[in-house]
């Protein structure tokens, strides 16, 4: 099977300018060589803290901004250099669902007009656009009469469904979901997630699912990529990642997910990372996670760890992955004892 979506060594940097002559005084390293691959019809979850570059990656995939180097390909066609007619057809193939359901719908347009606009742009469903708009609403579990209502008449969950309907209007192959449920109540999240899953099965969609909530990612993703400060630190099939994380950062993230069983919850070891994420203006040399890692050695400061293939399809960018460490749960590190005391 051909892989639908591919990112190869994507770099995105924002210049920081200051002073009278707008001199470049620094660079925000938003994405520093990100590569990933999403097979057709599958879901790749992307997780990481805020500021790790996951949204920048999503916005690069839908061409909301250009990238500085590297390549993003859809079935081998390059996304980053498309223009004119190619860009138009690309826009039809790749869509996005946004994070904030309150800002992602134009308050002045009825739901019908917003959906019909998407059809108009690509000349779809000519002559039966209002019927098509109603069908789209039904597809996302909303009543077709909603076409004549305005966004402010809906709840967050309903708006997010409308956002999904708008993305579906152009019959895309890939949808980038940028934290689609993080603004919703937990009870509503489940409904939207189930809807997304159903639509994927029905339409064979490929998802890039960006989130910071691991349990949400786990539910929807076939594979998960963990990002830290503009780099992917680990990717693995979902089950594998949750069962046996290789990268210390992944391990720390997973230990922060609450377990609904109080006995297990009390007995398990927790890793609390100390300190903050370093500034992307001036990321640490070598491994970017080393400043907060309890396993960091001299090698981590000098040599950038590359993504290496480990067992069972896991790839991790670490000099000291869990499976290669002698005593993986040895709590002797000073940073961890300190963290445990907090």
């Amino acid at each position: 099977m051909s892989s639908t979506l591919e990112a190869i060594d994507v770099v995105k940097e924002y210049p920081v300018r200051s002073g009278l002559f707008r001199r470049r005084t620094g660079t925000v390293h938003a994405l520093s060589g990100v590569s990933l691959e999403v097979p057709k019809g599958k879901t790749l979850g992307i997780v990481g803290e805020s500021g790790c570059g996951k949204s920048t990656l999503g916005r690069s995939i839908v061409r909301l901004h250009d990238i500085d180097s590297g390549s993003i390909r859809l079935d081998g066609e390059s996304v980053e250099s498309a223009s004119g007619q190619d860009l138009r057809s690309l826009r039809r193939r790749v869509q996005m669902v946004f994070q904030d359901p309150y800002a992602s719908l134009n308050p002045r347009l009825t739901i019908g007009s917003a959906l019909i606009e998407a059809l108009e742009i690509h000349g779809l469903a000519a002559g039966r656009r209002s019927e098509r708009a109603q069908e789209l609403l039904e597809m996302v579990g909303l009543r077709p009469e909603f076409v004549q209502r305005y966004p402010h008449e809906f709840s967050g969950g309903q708006r997010q469904r409308i956002g999904i309907a708008r993305a579906l209007a152009v019959e895309p192959e890939v949808i980038v979901l940028d934290e689609p449920v993080s603004a919703l109540d937990v009870s509503v999240q489940a409904g939207v997630l189930n809807q997304l899953k159903e639509l994927q099965d029905l339409l064979g969609l490929t998802y890039v699912f960006i989130a910071h909530d691991l349990s949400v990612v786990r539910y929807l993703s076939d594979e998960v990529a963990v990002m830290y400060l503009g780099r992917i630190v680990e990717t693995a099939p979902t089950g594998r990642l949750f069962a046996a994380p290789e990268h210390p950062y992944t391990k720390a993230l997973l230990s922060a997910v609450p377990i609904p069983d109080p006995i297990v919850e009390r007995s398990r070891e927790r890793i609390t990372l100390s300190g903050d994420v370093p500034s992307p203006l001036n990321p640490p040399s070598g491994c970017r996670f080393r400043t907060r890692c309890w396993k960091a050695t001299e090698r981590c400061a000098t040599e950038i760890p590359l993504l290496r293939t480990m067992a069972d399809g896991t790839r991790a960018a670490c000099h000291h992955p869990e499976s290669e460490t002698q005593s993986p749960t040895d709590p002797t590190d000073s940073q961890r004892t300190e963290a445990g005391a907090q």
Binding site: F98, A103, S104, N106, E117, I121, R166
Partner: peptide, 24 residues
């Protein structure tokens, strides 16, 4: 974000300005 959404849908700058900005 609704402006981003229109751009991702393929709306031309003129359409974004006339349809999504001026009414606001």
């Amino acid at each position: 974000e609704f402006v981003d959404a229109a751009i991702v849908l393929g709306a031309s700058p003129l359409r974004v300005i006339v349809r999504h900005m001026i009414p606001n």
